[in-house]
Simulated assay, not measured.
Amino acid sequence: MWLITAISSAILFGLAGWWMKVSQMRGGSTKTLLLGLYASGTLGFGVHAALEGTLDRLSDPHIWIAGLIIGAGSAWGNALFMKALHFGPASLTSPLTNMNIILVVAMATWWYQEPLSASEAVGISLLLLAVIFIAHKRKEPLTITEKRWFLLVGTAIIMFALRNGGLKVTEEMGFPSAPILFIAYAVSLCWFLVPSNAPVSRNAERTGLWLGIVAGLFSYGGLQLYAMALATGQANLAAPIFATNSLVVAAGAILYYKEKLTFVQWTAFGCTILGLIIIRL
């Protein structure tokens, strides 16, 4: 059951990424996109916490500390990732930032003593290869001339690890995920509420906002299922499965925008399927 939950979390979170891509293709504002995403995500986690009866845990300072740390990891991770794209190619930036999953797997395996068989290690390796291969672009230069790129990517890895690994830590501590993620998204919402001086058209703001709201609902569903997968299964398996969410965006680009993938990117899909089969065995 946890495997289905983990795969579902990757699909839903990937659909959030898909709507973010749609916004980009339609010229939507990144600022209002993230504003809408964190607004609807905050609402989703708030309603979820209320329905499951954990909203009263907001009076616990430990929940706030966890939420602030995970929220900082989410908001700053996204901000640093977007900034890094200005100084280096997506073909390197995207797979390297996704390598935060290695930190989560290492923590779950060595700190929390989660078992990991040889076949599962092979499956994880295939999933990580898929994450690397899917970002491959034709003829994109891979030379890094800006030193700030290395600092941005390295810090983004740590920030995303705080989000993805932080949920494992709080689960081990017996904290409910919904109120923590409610705080995390509320913190991120406040971060993106800060006015920007960059000139943006009204249409771009509106497009970004509405598609961001849709993306936020899928983001809520994906992260909530990821937290459930961590609670019912192993983090060193659930985390790399969750990291394959970028393949959903690629699949949407093929079906809707008729984008053609490279042989390496098609290999990524094969690695994902094979990796999931091996983990299931």
Rank of each mutant, 00 (worst) to 15 (best):
202 R>G: 03
209 L>M: 14
150 F>V: 14
191 W>M: 14
227 A>N: 11
186 A>Q: 06
155 T>C: 11
157 I>S: 00
189 L>E: 07
255 L>R: 08
256 Y>R: 06
257 Y>L: 12
166 G>F: 06
152 L>V: 04
166 G>N: 08
189 L>H: 06
223 L>D: 09
252 G>V: 05
203 N>I: 08
213 I>K: 02
200 V>E: 15
154 G>Q: 10
259 E>H: 02
146 E>Y: 03
145 T>N: 15
194 V>Q: 13
229 A>G: 06
220 Y>C: 04
202 R>Q: 14
170 T>D: 02
152 L>D: 06
226 Y>Q: 11
175 F>I: 01
199 P>W: 02
240 P>G: 11
207 T>C: 03
193 L>C: 14
144 I>E: 07
160 F>R: 03
221 G>K: 03
197 N>C: 00
182 F>Y: 11
243 A>K: 02
173 M>R: 10
262 T>C: 01
202 R>P: 00
154 G>V: 13
201 S>D: 12
183 I>Y: 07
207 T>V: 12
155 T>W: 11
220 Y>G: 04
227 A>Q: 08
148 R>S: 14
210 W>Y: 12
255 L>K: 08
245 N>F: 14
156 A>Q: 07
248 V>W: 02
197 N>R: 11
240 P>I: 09
163 R>A: 10
223 L>I: 11
190 C>I: 14
181 L>K: 04
194 V>R: 14
243 A>L: 10
208 G>C: 09
201 S>F: 04
261 L>E: 05
254 I>M: 13
254 I>G: 01
176 P>M: 08
154 G>A: 12
162 L>F: 13
204 A>Y: 04
249 V>N: 06
261 L>C: 02
204 A>Q: 03
144 I>W: 13
171 E>D: 12
187 V>L: 15
190 C>H: 00
219 S>T: 05
222 G>W: 04
218 F>M: 09
145 T>Y: 11
182 F>M: 14
160 F>T: 06
249 V>C: 01
148 R>W: 07
226 Y>F: 15
170 T>V: 15
163 R>S: 09
252 G>I: 08
233 G>P: 02
219 S>P: 00
182 F>R: 02
209 L>V: 04
179 P>C: 02
235 A>K: 10
171 E>P: 00
198 A>I: 10
199 P>T: 01
240 P>D: 12
256 Y>Q: 11
214 V>Q: 03
191 W>Q: 05
167 L>G: 13
171 E>Y: 06
255 L>C: 05
202 R>M: 09
171 E>Q: 12
154 G>T: 11
242 F>G: 07
165 G>Q: 09
145 T>W: 07
237 L>M: 05
209 L>H: 01
229 A>L: 07
168 K>A: 12
204 A>M: 02
207 T>F: 01
258 K>A: 08
190 C>P: 00
175 F>R: 04
236 N>H: 06
184 A>Y: 10
253 A>N: 12
